[in-house]
């Protein structure tokens, strides 16, 4: 039997700050080579989990293993794990090259060798020739790349990224998402990153753990958590969703359970439109229209509750129109509980 220990294993890990349980009985396996996202609102415990892996925090209860070795009581400087900090934490008294070579210098790697390695690490993040710059001269995106090179040059087994793209503007963020993905694929290192941006998590990660109030509420592939949320929290947090009460869902051909219905699954039609057999429908009146560029979000008040439909831009629906909402019954995903 071939057995490979997970890159990171949390076993019933808790971490308290005063009376607050920042991380509450979390168990989690992150497989080697995964691009794993810790997703959740601020204060949900995702960053504390990252800091537990890095060793900046120690668990109050439970155990953490990194590639099968216990991390209990192991200080950050003896872990083969490197971090890209949210605000990069580049050392202002060192040049870019010295920053990148810092970890190697600490390990006692000779000057010529570490300079060569720093140089190729900088080339990898497309900053060749920046060795002698001062960090204050760099833009946000460039600092991000330096921080990445500084972590990767040490050849970590796990790379931790704390809101790595949070400080970048939209265009740069999309570009860095692509680069991080291809970097991760080519290096094959386990990446664990923290984000509160569900779009970022869905587009970059192989798997996502969704945090709420110190607990993991769902783990799965991006399509798992998006298509089949198991709780209202996940349905709401990952993308936006219409949450249907059990009675409403049952009345429209779903199960008698709290049910998620994604806005983009709902079509808007005229009131007398034919409803295909596999579809459910509800009549209502348009109460709000929000233009969002590629899509338009239309709020329709039905008899029981207001539903949001997301349609490609350019619909000619107006506020006050009487419309029919049509969606496939299969688009209704029953969730575990009402919470």
């Amino acid at each position: 039997m071939s057995f490979m220990s997970p890159a990171v294993r949390f076993q019933n890990v808790s971490r308290r700050f005063g009376s607050v349980r920042a991380v509450d009985n979390v168990s989690l396996d992150i497989e080697p080579g995964e691009f794993f996202a810790l997703l959740g609102p601020s204060g949900s415990g995702k960053t504390t989990c990252l800091r537990l892996i890095a060793g900046f925090e120690q668990p109050d209860e439970g155990h953490i293993e990194i590639f099968g070795e216990t991390a209990d009581g192991v200080p950050p400087y003896r872990r083969n794990v490197n971090t890209v900090f949210q605000d990069y934490a580049l050392f202002p008294h060192m040049t870019v090259g010295e920053n990148v070579a810092y970890g190697l210098m600490i390990k006692g790697v000779g000057k010529a060798e570490r300079e060569a390695k720093a140089k190729s690490a900088l080339a990898m993040v497309k900053l060749a020739g920046y060795e002698s710059r001062r960090t204050a001269q760099l833009s946000g995106g460039q600092r991000q790349r330096v921080a990445l090179a500084r972590a990767l040059v040490n050849g970590p087994k796990v790379l931790l990224l704390d809101e790595p793209l949070g400080a970048l503007d939209l265009k740069l963020r999309e570009q860095m998402q692509e680069e991080l993905k291809s970097l991760q694929t080519s290096l094959g290192i386990t990446f664990v990153f923290v984000t509160h941006d569900q779009g970022e998590a869905l587009s970059m990660a192989n798997r996502v753990a969704i945090f709420n109030e110190g607990k993991i509420v769902q783990v799965g592939t991006p399509s798992d958590v998006y298509e089949r949320p198991t709780s209202r929290f996940v349905a709401d947090f990952v993308g936006s969703s219409n949450v249907l009460p059990p009675e409403f869902a049952a009345a429209h051909g779903g199960h008698a359970a709290w049910t998620s219905l994604r806005p983009e699954k709902i079509q808007i039609a005229s009131q007398n439109a034919l409803v295909p057999a596999a579809c459910a429908h509800a009549k209502g009146i348009v109460t709000a229209i929000s233009y969002q560029g590629a899509v338009t979000r239309i709020t329709v008040a039905t008899e029981k509750l207001a539903l949001i439909a997301s349609t490609p831009a350019g619909t000619d629906v107006r506020k006050g129109d009487s419309v029919s909402l049509i969606w496939p019954k299969s688009a209704m995903v029953a969730m575990g509980e009402g919470a």
């Binding site: 890095a54 900046f56 400087y77 900090f85 050392f91 810092y102 210098m105 600490i106 040490n154």
Partner: peptide
């Protein structure tokens, strides 16, 4: 504080962090 964490993260023990990060700053 995260300079000190970054230094530890990159393998520096507290003595090395003091010498290479805290004292120069």
């Amino acid at each position: 504080a995260n300079f000190i964490e970054a230094s530890a993260d990159l393998g520096a023990d507290p003595r090395q962090t003091f010498r290479t990060v805290i004292f120069p700053l």
